[in-house]
Simulated assay, not measured.
Amino acid sequence: MELTERQKRIIQIVKENEPISADNIAKHLYLSKPTLRTDLTILTMTGILDARPKVGYFFAGQNFEPLLFEDLYEKSISEIMVPPVVIKKEATINDAVTMLFMHDVGTLYVTENQVLLGIISRKDLLRSTISNTSINKVPVAMIMTRMPNVVTLQEDERILDAGYKIIQHQIDSLPVISKDNPALVIGKVSKTVVLKHFIDEAMHLKK
């Protein structure tokens, strides 16, 4: 997969104006900073650009390698997903809080016979514990975000697709559903999982 015309233009702008902030790159392109977030992430992760806090972007001098892009972004979600942390719909809010801290996760998936019914985020639980004094009685089904209002991934989607969805929807993790049976949750992909994949690939390239 080749760089897009916009990504090539970003590289040229950085070469001509380094160091340059993301805000100023956006101004050159007459676009908003959030619109460029994914492009800048890709260019930084592939080693084409270097980003320094409070300084800006530099041209790192690395040539774009298609194989590197394939390793980082084109792999299937099924290759990096991890087991989901699930909870039954009858479980209480108190049970959910305990499970969240036991597994050190940001999101729980509410299931019944592996069928995804909804999700509960850390924010949902915080809101509920503050506003509700009966957390030992209220079931999680009362506060969860229900299907089909949950953003999901199919197991054959790309890591790049996961990154787009996480950024676009500003969420911690995505449930991975079966391609053959979209009702079944078979894994999850989180910000941490994606970041670990990038770090593992970078370490592998250094060897």
Rank of each mutant, 00 (worst) to 15 (best):
K179V: 07
D180L: 12
A141Y: 08
Q154D: 03
V140G: 05
I159T: 08
G106Y: 02
T145P: 05
E112K: 14
K179N: 08
Q114T: 05
L174N: 05
I130H: 04
I120C: 09
P139R: 09
V150P: 06
D156A: 04
T145L: 12
E155D: 12
A183E: 12
E157F: 00
V115L: 06
V140A: 08
F101S: 09
T129Y: 06
L100W: 06
S173F: 04
T107V: 15
Q154R: 11
D156Y: 11
V185G: 03
T111V: 15
H103P: 00
L116H: 05
H103C: 04
S121F: 10
H103L: 02
L126I: 14
G163P: 00
L117M: 13
K179A: 10
N181F: 08
G187V: 01
N113H: 12
V115Y: 07
V151Q: 10
I177Y: 03
D172V: 11
R127Y: 12
Q114A: 08
V151D: 08
P139G: 09
S134N: 15
M102D: 15
I166C: 03
V138T: 15
S134Y: 03
R158K: 15
T107F: 01
S128V: 07
I119T: 14
K123A: 13
P175L: 10
L108H: 00
V138N: 00
T111L: 04
D180M: 08
I186Y: 07
G106V: 09
I177G: 02
I177P: 02
L108V: 03
T145C: 08
K137E: 15
L117H: 08
G118Y: 01
